[in-house]
Every structure is written in structure tokens, then in C-alpha cells.
């Protein structure tokens, strides 16, 4: 994860982080979508920004997503939850560039310009993991503070992020990648190799990231809804508080370990 720190030495990367943050926050306003659950959440086209800009601009996209989400909260929803929104959105943008090309036979072996079925499959998997870990971190944080049950936020964030990025992302990448490549603005073209983390063990890293991200979300949902040990067709008597927080924590730790190995 060295590049997450060293990117701040590059003026272009600082500018890209600022632009990502600004565009993320800005398109939340005039392009407000239609509600998925009226009053609670909506289809937000802006959710595609962290994925697309993360894949193109690497750590600048990740930091920009985190800052953009925080700025979005400056329009009336700034609270302690914003801290977990910051971290969750950072990883929503981080996972894509980190894991692309490192998922063994599931990887397409090509760039992020989605032009083939194999690239689309890899893209869909990346979006799913990004959405899952973003949801797990935010839902875990709000459960830790006792503000919202994991099950509510975890499921809504995962579906919202995944659906938006899956529908809008491939077309946008298909349009943007050739131009960004031509303008020498891909993060790998801007940063020196010495400032980018060496892959300690990409295979184990990807495995841990998947196990931690997906496992965290599943464990949180299962514990929170009472799915674990529940009788079919009944509303589970879920667990809240300590059990969910402690149950999800090892998976989040595993995910972070995976990030360090990548």
C-alpha cells in the first residue's frame, strides 16, 4: 500500500484526487437518481465514480472517493458516521486497481477498457468485492456506534453500489480509458515504480481480500438478521451490537492483511 502514501508527492496525483473528490460530490447533486427505497436510498449515478476513477487513477481515485464522500456529507449529513463513510469509500475505490489482474484464471490478463466478455467478468467481480467491503466497513462502523443495524445498511449499500457501477462502469471505461491512456494520466504512467508497493504475495493477497470482504459482509448479515441457525420462512431474531461487531472484525482484519500483501 506504499503508493497510497507516496502519491501525495506527485502534483498530478494530488490534482486527480481533488478532481475525483469534486466530481463525485458534484454529480450527487444535479444527477440525483430515483429512489430504490423511498426516503432511505436511491439509485445514485455518482456511485460509479470511485470504481471508474479508482481503476484509472489508482490511489488518487481512492483518496478522491473518500474525500468526495466526506464533501457530500457537507451538504447536511455530517456525523460520526462520515468517518466510516470516508474509510468505506476509500476502499470502494482502492480494491479495483489493487486486485485487477491478480485473480488467477478469473482475470482477463488485459487492461480496464472493457471490450471483451472476460474483461466484463473480471470487472463485475471487482465491483462486487468493492461494493461488499465498502458496505461491510460502513455497516460495521455504524453497528459499532449503535446507530443502525448491520443488516439494513450492509444490504442496501452493497446492492446500490454494485448495481450502479455494473451498469454504468463498463461503458464509461470503454469511453474514458483510451483518452486517459493517450493523455498519459493513468496512475501507472504518473507514478515511479519505486513509489509503488511491491507485490509481496498477490495470490494470497487476493484470496485474503476476497475472504475478508465477502466473509465480512456475509457474517455481518447472517449475525444481524439471525440467519445463522434460523428457521426457514421466519423473520430471524437477529443479533445486534457486540456479536456483530466481534463477528465481522476478523474478516475486516483479513481483508486489510490481504491489501498489505498485494
Amino acid at each position: 500500500m506504499r503508493e497510497v502514501v507516496t502519491m501525495w508527492r506527485y502534483t498530478k496525483m494530488v490534482v486527480l484526487a481533488a478532481l475525483t473528490a469534486a466530481v463525485y460530490a458534484a454529480i450527487l447533486i444535479p444527477l440525483k437518481g430515483f429512489p430504490l427505497i423511498p426516503g432511505f436510498t436511491e439509485f445514485r449515478p455518482a456511485n460509479v465514480v470511485p470504481i471508474v476513477f479508482g481503476l484509472l487513477f489508482g490511489p488518487a481515485g481512492a483518496w478522491g472517493s473518500a474525500l468526495g464522500n466526506l464533501i457530500g456529507d457537507f451538504f447536511g449529513t455530517l456525523s460520526l458516521g462520515s468517518l466510516f463513510g470516508f474509510v468505506g469509500n476509500f476502499f470502494y475505490g482502492f480494491v479495483g486497481y489493487k486486485i485487477w489482474g491478480h485473480m488467477g484464471w478469473l482475470s482477463s490478463g488485459k487492461g480496464v477498457d472493457i471490450r471483451s466478455g472476460r474483461q466484463f467478468l473480471e470487472y463485475a467481480l471487482v465491483v462486487f468485492l468493492s461494493s461488499a467491503i465498502c458496505a461491510a466497513i460502513i455497516a460495521w462502523g455504524l453497528e459499532l456506534l449503535g446507530l443502525l443495524p448491520f443488516a439494513i445498511l450492509g444490504s442496501i449499500i452493497t446492492l446500490n453500489n454494485f448495481f450502479t457501477a455494473l451498469v454504468l462502469g463498463p461503458l464509461l471505461l470503454w469511453l474514458l480509458y483510451p483518452r486517459v491512456y493517450r493523455w498519459d494520466l493513468l496512475w501507472t504512467d504518473i507514478m515511479d515504480e519505486k513509489d509503488v508497493s511491491t507485490h509481496l504475495s498477490p495470490g494470497f493477497g487476493a484470496l485474503f481480500m476476497w475472504s475478508g470482504g465477502l466473509g465480512g459482509l456475509i457474517a455481518g448479515l447472517a449475525l444481524s438478521t439471525g440467519l445463522y441457525g434460523a428457521v426457514p420462512f421466519t423473520f430471524g431474531a437477529g443479533t445486534v451490537g457486540g456479536a456483530v461487531v466481534l463477528g465481522v472484525l476478523p474478516f475486516l482484519a483479513l481483508f486489510f492483511l490481504g491489501c498489505l500483501l498485494m
Partner: peptide
Amino acid sequence: AKKYIPLLAPVFLNTIRSTDQLA
């Protein structure tokens, strides 16, 4: 959802193009 593509693409391109000038 697909109708947002012609809205997002110009905004994104406009943003990205200003990177070099700003830097």
C-alpha cells in the same frame, strides 16, 4: 440507468482534461 451515460461522459471528460492545466 443507461440514460445517465450521455450525462456522465462529458462531465468526466471535461474534468479529466483539466488535470494537466491545473497541475
